[in-house]
Design a protein around this nucleic acid. Structure first.
Length: 823
RNA sequence: GCCGGGAUGGUGAAAUUGGCAAACACGAUGGACUUAAAAUCCAUUGUCCGUUAAGGACCUGUGGGUUCGAGUCCCUCUCCCGGCACCA
């Protein structure tokens, strides 16, 4: 071939991108699963176009895929589109462009951008969650959950704009108002579909222990989100009533300090309990007020605690004491039983509330350091201590009392140990158009009926009128709403809610393996062979919801015996954000860096190299346009190096290879292979991998010298640099690889090995410290003995200057590294 | 408030097991090449003291501790980022 002496990236990049397509570099044969490696990147929402921050995710994935291909694995690296969702629908309402049109357009743009980056995928397996051939199976999965009793309907509060007369998603509520008309958003109870993820709370928690290769912080976040706590459920009888109120506490040791009880404003028994209260109206007014302010307001910052006395009393079962029953805004209906035994002396919230309403307090756990007096307390005492005022339990530690009291209550049948979780069921229905229709039908005589599997998919109509106001546009589509009851055949009505897009994304990793299968969501056999995913890569923003939902759906499918693994993702890597001027890249902030211009100016390899070199990939990084120049400079330098090596005069002097410089270079080749391989295998610290190859390149230039003497080690080192860089900068390295006479793609060659024996030089430099301060350096033989070191170093003049020639107190030797002379 | 993560030169960062702090880059300054510019190459570049130099002292957010030796381990405090947040 003819060699261009200048790095002309334009021709090089398009040439090799075409070549990879031709040789099907990224096509995985699913029937060959022996050395399978499933490399998965979180599939994107098709937004208008990508910026360099998005690119980081795909580039990291591409590096991993290319490296694993070179390691000889059968790599599957598919890509698809999480295409349903709000932005496309909002664009439709605003701009008169139908969601499937705008989505399709965005996908085209993004595919072009991905290709430009040189990121490779097996496009034969592409999925698009908004296509009927995909959402048919999302609906099928819904039906499987429904049949199992894991999908159910109940009333739940939604955000409601009274002016637009419509449901709002949380993202559409801005500062408590409607994003379109600013009207104050209220809460409205509507029938909603839920998945019973709470049935899986314990397993989702326990199996986190199995996911050892997940980042610890993600596991902690999931653990906190699931929020398991152990305690006791206690029954309090209501005085002059047949009602029994149940409450849950994790601090049963404080039960004798319970001086009142509190109900959530949403508690269903309130009406009945206050029916005969003289100030019934006043109480109901408070309850209404508290309920309407719930959710949004209550989840914002600290809300002043407010409450009202019901006029009722309940009996504390442990001591028969009558305590007042209150209603207060700080009690949540959704957790426990919506009722709380209040112990103001040992709970911050109860303390604050009791102070405000002047409720009684009693210390039951004493501070072992200094005796507690209620009148002197300025806050609750929540630490451990010694039991007092608790009848037969006095004198023991509260930890011990927890167990004793729980035992006692269970034996007397007035309480029972229980476990509670913060995790709530997954609300999956959306009053929105651009999502997978929920496949159920309402019949006046038969009730809720599932759409028969043979009738799937329930097609989302395309011809829909988008009006700026109102409910889901589906309501206006007569053909869609009108349906026949699958049971009795009578006229019935179709569900108009669609599914949360998290449902679509909770199973897509299965669909890639059977993307063209029209008879099933996935093929169990193929799934069992290829899953779990070997490496999952994505942003931390999905640390909780997406990953938890995917784990849940996988476990459900496992229980249905459709798959034989119960965790979807083996390794997880969460990459950091790329920020500019200290902020996340976004159009509104105007700090978006588009890859298109950069690629035009410097080429994709430069953008890739800079993105990878910017810092450790799990950390956030600041984008710096000038840094890109540096990456470009290095690639030009690399290109010239190979040109020199290929065109330069080979050394004729055989002694060259024995000279120290060349020996050093040979050692460095092996050290660099070791370093890069370890960074690839360990923690994806590509920044240090790249810097070590830069060092190798610098060394090659040094050894070649001005005369450009091409010795064997120089040739070998240049070739090694090229192959080690190939996963990061695939185009230029392919070009250089072929310039060096290779006929096959660099990705078809084996990843190099290193030789441990060559790594060590026979002479090394050892550092001499006196009292911990560096005072000299000595070249000594490898593994020199302590005696030899003493003889050499203690007699040296520059060291004697600091020791005064006296014999040291201690002589510490760290082999082949350092000695410390302690005077 | 609770739970994570972080703080190292002018900048991004490195230091893998407690063993030479600042590798590799960016930027800056000076120089070579050039009519000139770009590109490229060379040199210097943590701070302070020292006229230059030789040399020395000090440096990993703060203060303390363990150790022959601490960016790394332990305790205290400050600030920044992320998650959760009345979960009884």
């Amino acid at each position: 071939m003819t060699i261009k002496t200048e790095y002309a990236f334009k021709g090089i990049e398009s040439k090799w991108q075409k070549h990879w397509k031709k040789i099907k570099l990224f096509s995985a044969d699913l029937s060959k699963y022996k050395n399978k490696y499933y490399c998965l990147m979180m599939f994107p929402y098709p937004s208008a176009s990508l910026h360099v921050g998005h690119g980081r995710n795909y580039i990291i994935g591409d590096v991993v895929a290319r490296y694993k291909i070179m390691k000889g694995l059968n790599v599957l690296t598919p890509m698809g589109w999480d295409a349903f969702g709000l932005p496309a629908e909002n664009a439709a309402i605003k701009g008169n462009v139908r969601p499937h049109v705008s989505t399709g357009r965005n996908i085209t743009t993004m595919k072009r951008q991905l290709a430009q980056w040189g990121v490779g995928y097996d496009w034969d397996k592409e999925v698009n969650s908004s296509k009927p051939e995909y959402y048919k199976w999302t609906q099928w999965i819904f039906l499987q959950l429904y049949k199992k009793g894991l999908a159910y309907k109940k009333k739940a509060a939604v955000n409601w704009c009274p002016s637009c007369n419509t449901v709002l998603a949380n993202e559409q509520v801005v500062d408590g108002g409607c994003e379109r008309c600013d009207t104050k958003v209220t809460q409205k109870e509507l029938e909603q579909w839920f998945f019973k993820i709470t049935d899986y709370a314990q397993r989702l928690l326990k199996d986190l222990d199995k996911l050892e290769d997940w980042p610890e912080r993600v596991r902690i976040m999931q653990r906190n989100w699931i929020g398991r706590s152990e305690g006791v459920r206690i029954e309090f009888t209501v005085v002059d009533s047949d009602k029994i109120l149940t409450c849950f506490t994790t601090r049963v040791d404080t039960i004798c300090g319970a001086t009142y009880m509190v109900l959530a404003p949403e508690h269903p028994w309130i009406g009945e309990l206050i029916a005969s209260a003289p100030n019934k109206k006043e109480i109901m007014a408070f309850v209404e007020h508290a309920r309407s302010e719930s959710m949004i307001k209550r989840s914002q910052l600290d809300v002043e605690k407010e409450g009202i006395f019901t006029g009722r009393y309940v009996v504390n079962p442990i001591n028969g004491e009558k305590i007042p029953l209150w209603i207060a805004n700080y009690v949540l209906m959704a957790y426990g039983a919506g009722a709380v035994m209040a112990v103001p002396t040992h709970d911050e919230r109860d303390f604050e509330f009791a102070k405000k309403y002047d409720l009684p307090m009693r210390v039951v756990i004493d501070d072992p350091e200094s005796h507690l007096e209620v009148s002197a307390m300025s806050g609750a005492y929540i630490d451990d201590g010694i039991m007092i005022n608790s009848g037969g339990f006095d004198g023991i530690s509260n930890k011990e009392a927890m167990e004793k009291i729980a035992d006692y209550m269970e034996s007397k049948n007035i309480g029972k140990r229980a476990v509670h979780y913060k995790l709530r069921d997954w609300l999956i229905s959306r009053q929105r158009y651009w999502g997978a229709p929920i496949p159920v039908i309402y019949c006046d005589s038969c009730g809720i009926r599932q759409v028969p599997e043979s009738d799937l998919p329930v097609l989302l109509p395309q011809d829909v009128e988008f009006k700026p106001h109102g409910e889901s546009p589906l309501k206006t589509v007569k053909d869609f709403v009108e349906a026949k009851c699958p049971e009795c055949g009578k006229k019935a009505r179709r569900e108009i809610d669609t599914m949360d897009t998290f449902v679509d994304s909770s199973w897509y990793y299965l669909r890639y393996l059977s993307s063209k299968n029209n008879n099933a969501a996935f093929d169990s056999k193929i799934a069992d062979r290829w899953l779990p995913v070997d490496q999952y890569i994505g942003g931390v923003e999905h640390a909780i919801l997406h990953l938890l939902y995917s784990r849940f759906i996988t476990k459900v499918l496992y229980d249905l015996k459709l798959i034989s693994f119960d965790e979807p993702f083996g390794n997880l890597f969460t990459q950091g954000m790329i920020v500019k001027n200290g902020a996340k890249m976004s159009k509104s902030k105007g700090n978006v860096v588009s890859p298109d211009d950069l690629i035009k100016k410097y080429g994709a390899d430069t953008v890739r190299l800079y993105t990878l070199f910017i810092g450790p990939p799990e950390r956030d990084a600041e984008w710096n346009d000038r840094g890109v120049e540096g990456a470009y400079r290095f690639l030009k330098r690399l290109y010239r190096l190979v040109v020199d090596v290929v065109e330069g005069k080979a050394s004729t002097d055989e002694s060259d290879e024995d000279d120290e410089q060349n020996k050093d270079l040979t050692r460095m080749i092996h050290a660099t292979i070791k370093k890069v391989t370890e960074d690839m295998e360990r923690d994806f610290h590509f920044n240090t991998a790249i810097s070590s190859v830069m060092e190798l390149v610098n060394k090659i230039y040094l050894v070649m010298g001005d005369k450009k003497v091409i010795t064997e080690p120089v040739k070998k080192a240049a070739k090694t640099a090229v192959i080690l860089l190939s996963p990061f900068v695939p185009h230029i390295t392919e070009e250089l690889w072929s310039m060096m006479g290779e006929s096959e793609s660099v990705f078809k060659s084996d990843w190099p090995d290193y030789d441990r024996n060559i790594l060590q030089a026979e002479e090394i430099t050892i550092v001499a410290q006196v009292n911990g301060k560096v005072r000299g350096r000595f070249t000594v033989a490898l593994n020199a003995s302590e005696k030899d070191l003493k003889d050499l170093i203690l007699e040296d003049d520059s060291v004697k200057k600091w020791t005064g020639g006296r014999s040291p107190k201690k002589f510490i030797v760290i082999p082949n590294k350092l000695v410390n002379i302690v005077m």
